[in-house]
Design a protein around this nucleic acid. Sequence first.
DNA 1: TGTTAACCGAGACGGTACGTCGAGTCTTGGC
DNA 2: GCCAAGACTCGACGTACCGTCTCGGTTAACA
Lengths: 201, 201, 201, 201
Amino acid sequence: MTTEEKCSRGRPRCAKTHHAILQVTLALIAEQGYADLRIDEVAKRAGVGKQTIYRWWNNKAELCIEALLEDFHPTRLPDNPQGNTLRDDLLELASAISCRLNTPAARNMLVGVISASRVEDGSLASFRLQFLDTRREAIREIFSRHENNVHLRSGFDLELAVDLLHGPMWYRLLMDHGPLDEAFVRALVEGVLRLAVEEER
Amino acid sequence: MTTEEKCSRGRPRCAKTHHAILQVTLALIAEQGYADLRIDEVAKRAGVGKQTIYRWWNNKAELCIEALLEDFHPTRLPDNPQGNTLRDDLLELASAISCRLNTPAARNMLVGVISASRVEDGSLASFRLQFLDTRREAIREIFSRHENNVHLRSGFDLELAVDLLHGPMWYRLLMDHGPLDEAFVRALVEGVLRLAVEEER
Amino acid sequence: MTTEEKCSRGRPRCAKTHHAILQVTLALIAEQGYADLRIDEVAKRAGVGKQTIYRWWNNKAELCIEALLEDFHPTRLPDNPQGNTLRDDLLELASAISCRLNTPAARNMLVGVISASRVEDGSLASFRLQFLDTRREAIREIFSRHENNVHLRSGFDLELAVDLLHGPMWYRLLMDHGPLDEAFVRALVEGVLRLAVEEER
Amino acid sequence: MTTEEKCSRGRPRCAKTHHAILQVTLALIAEQGYADLRIDEVAKRAGVGKQTIYRWWNNKAELCIEALLEDFHPTRLPDNPQGNTLRDDLLELASAISCRLNTPAARNMLVGVISASRVEDGSLASFRLQFLDTRREAIREIFSRHENNVHLRSGFDLELAVDLLHGPMWYRLLMDHGPLDEAFVRALVEGVLRLAVEEER
DNA sequence: TGTTAACCGAGACGGTACGTCGAGTCTTGGC
DNA sequence: GCCAAGACTCGACGTACCGTCTCGGTTAACA
């Protein structure tokens, strides 16, 4: 999606159509996976011409990435947790994330979109930035809220915390070799805490 | 690929050809990713007819999975580390793995194959099993070698260790938002240790 | 194009625009043929919105037919010849027609419009009628002007004369297998005369 | 269609398929005209993949021209007439041609294919050559068979005869303003004869 | 030493989705 | 109400790749 700086001559873009396309895209990915997503089917289900899709997204990957971003949009994430301890907040955040991921739809979407776009591809970059930034910010805020209560280990960086929390969840999601349940989430948070804080009692 | 003992009349299959196909497949995935791999191109580069490929693999996914498995085969992994401490061994293992992953080729291959096959798809299952089992076994062996020196935290399970070690590495690989360097690996190992052992000094 | 006397509320239609559209249409057909004519291009070249075109012509064929009729309009044909003999007049008429046809533009236009509309299609009918009637009338007038000088063969009909004169010219035009020159025209007239008059010396 | 000088490696071209495509093409043009011919429909009706059509013909026009040529192939024309007089032979030939043309199918086909191809286009050239040559040859042979019986007018050329005979028939066919009946054909032959022979009694 | 059947490269095939293109319609804001 | 701009639906286009098939030709074990 390019920044809309067109002069307002001509028929304006139909917002309802735009949103419908993204919704249908999400639904279809969830139903049958990224690889089996057909642009024709998106168009038909959204009651839209194929051209209208290609007018705004250059290809399947771009369409799906924007659909994903809409679905994982910050406004649709839970509010920042307001617990009493760092541990409580991290647990709440991690639980929310794991719930969000723990569906076949999410697995299909994430793995498909990620894999469809090369590392060098700019279309993935925007996804990465927005997706990661949101989560990194959430964690950063939690840590800063509790910075007076805990003593952060020197040399600990936030990026690492993000990876430690998300990485194992994604790994289970992709490899599908173990449950993404409460116990697992709790263990992850425990790991992050032990790495992050000097002594958090 | 099943090994069927055909009656040995007629010309036997050419083993060199079989290997060449896998090599070319690997090379092409590394070059341009799984999604852009063309069977025709594999055939041409291997100097082989398309039929010869389909004689032994039912489709693109199967071919790629076998190619990947050949590349990540245990025999091509480093020998089990023989360090003095649990930390040393984990570090050596993690370093080896990260080196193995830290190329665009590996990223393309893993993400492509993973995403190409749905969760329910059996063709991925074998890859997952073999891939995971190998690594899980390596970690299990390391822990058991040192079980007398350290006191494992109760309730700690190995699957979790696998996820904690691999998950973040994969996550960085896929999202490409930070380096997969020695410092990162070291931090990961530290995290696993703190989670695994009661007090390991 | 119907001439309806709209109630004169609002801005009256721009006659210059109407004419410009037809001119551009003619020019584009001449340049690149009927099949490659694009309505968008007509609109752009005429500095006009597409809707303005469709307001007055229902589709591409109608637009082109009206453009053609304007170009081949009787008022743009030469005056009726006023020679001394039937032969002279026929020659002059035939020469005029052949000159009119003998350009790539004319070929593109005629063949395109003809072929675009099925036999049953009414939009062609008007073109045919007007186009043919004009020419048939010209020939009829020539014959009647000289009816006292020559002795028309019994059973000779005018339609046949039209076909004999125009048919071969069109045929050469379409098949492009021989020149549409003076000698050819002369031969045609000779043929018509021999078929039409008993003894015309 | 290119001359088949490929070395005979690989699966040979399926002749039945090739023929079926041409037949279906002819049928569809006859049914609904050239402009409404859909390649997809040809493929479906012929039980053939679209690619197979495009492998052998570059576009709709080429396909139709070859289909036409097959339909109007000399081997499918009547044998050369063997009458007693030049007039009889010409009449028989002209009748045969008019019968061949005098169907909506033929009209659709000819007008569509002719108009679709520009004058400069090579694909039409081959059609013209083969189509015209066949007919010119037929007329030439008739005249030469009777050259001892009649006295050809000096300066009369065969190309003119072809145009005089075919031109009016095509003109009626295209403009659809009069019947293509026996009387018309007879009049045409009469015209040709009067132009061609000095005194043919 | 010849038979013979599986192997092999080449490439045509049916099928399915792609991304593009143009016709004709609809919807703005400006005149 | 007319107009330019341009987004919209629809449907065909010509291309690309998949996985299958069918040729002629090759090759090694068996007879």
